[in-house]
Design a protein around this nucleic acid. Structure first.
Lengths: 191, 191
DNA sequence: GTTATTATGTACTTATAAGTACAGAATAAG
DNA sequence: CTTATTCTGTACTTATAAGTACATAATAAC
């Protein structure tokens, strides 16, 4: 028995993600988000809390999206090697060329010194832990396909490092061929 | 025939670097730099220009420091493999444990969406190009030490990606043993 | 010592952006 | 239709931080 909300919170989170992703947390003003979304500040504050809380919601959403996708790709039948190759390859559009310029929202946030609040660190940490767990689990399961002495745990972490590196260097708009070549070379470690 | 400057600009750049590195460009106010350095704002403006110009000076200095060190390490006699292992290993204190938390000033800046001014992008691009060139040159020179089909150019870039990844993940304070293990595994690509 | 010149420190202006007060609009229940 | 309740938009307050005006201090040349 009250006036209903005039917008879908998910739509606003989607728009906020675009703005935050483009300019970063600090440099994004709420006025820009109200301009992009058409939602006035009091409504944003009522729905999401302050700027940090809004950003946390956006980041969690971003994490969930990537984790869901990773789960699907890494659960594929066939050799672990191919699943992981496909996982890495899937990032190419996001870490090369024009679209890749903004890099990864999570890594951009992790490297932003002004964002070391506990909640954000926790969200990022959890995301990385889960991603690495997916890789590790898959590599462990297919252990016999690899050479003797193959260490799935270290390899999972190495793949995380490569992924982070590709996303960090994405801001220089590298060529997609170059990214592909690096992935192919790294696949040499999965043997 | 005038009043001499009461401070060494290099000292101020050193202090500014610490503050910028800890908190990031946006979150660092000039008041914090005046507090840390004891130099009042008008003197900073007279000596360095505005905040962006000061940061650019700091970043260039940072780049020069790492490039100088890389040049020394990579010019070492002995196998290229060992030189590069030593180069990567040298970053361990800066990408693990408490001290590693702040990561790499250059990568932190590259991933900061609010910093996409031309001058900064150029400085970072040049830095990365030079580093990769040092690696590539060294790998090319020792080409015969590697297996047939070894590609020094791609490998140089892969090492850059790993380096960037380690620095990006540094903010989670990983264990130095884990970093070491990743480096050792990646060294498997230099064969 | 005087003077021209450049640095320093205080205190200011100005702009921007986070967060909110409040009046009015929209709905569901009765 | 009335009313309680919650949302919306305008306009505000407040804080912070970039950049500067101006008076003063310190030096080198003469």
């Amino acid at each position: 028995m009250a006036r209903p909300r005039s917008f879908d919170p998910d739509d606003v989170l989607e728009i906020a993600r675009q703005v935050f992703w483009q300019k970063g947390f600090q440099a994004t003003s709420l006025d820009e988000i109200t301009a992009a979304s058409g939602i006035a500040k009091p409504s944003l504050y009522a729905a999401f809390g302050d700027k940090h809380a809004l950003f946390l919601r956006v980041l969690d959403r971003y994490h969930d999206g990537i984790l869901g996708w990773a789960e699907r790709v890494l659960a594929q039948p066939g050799p672990a090697r191919e699943a992981i190759r496909q996982w890495l390859t899937g990032f190419i559009p996001y870490c090369s060329g024009e679209k890749g310029q903004r890099g990864c929202l999570s890594i951009n946030s992790a490297t932003d010194g002004s964002l070391d609040q506990a909640a954000l660190r926790k969200s990022i940490e959890r995301y990385n832990r889960r991603l690495e767990e997916l890789l590790r689990t898959r590599l462990r399961a297919d252990r016999e396909q690899f050479k003797k002495g193959f260490d799935p745990d270290i390899t999972a972490h190495t793949v995380m490092v490569v992924h982070a590196g590709l996303m960090a260097l994405a801001h220089q708009t590298p060529d997609s061929k170059q990214v592909k070549a690096v992935i192919e070379q790294v696949m040499g470690l999965l043997a």
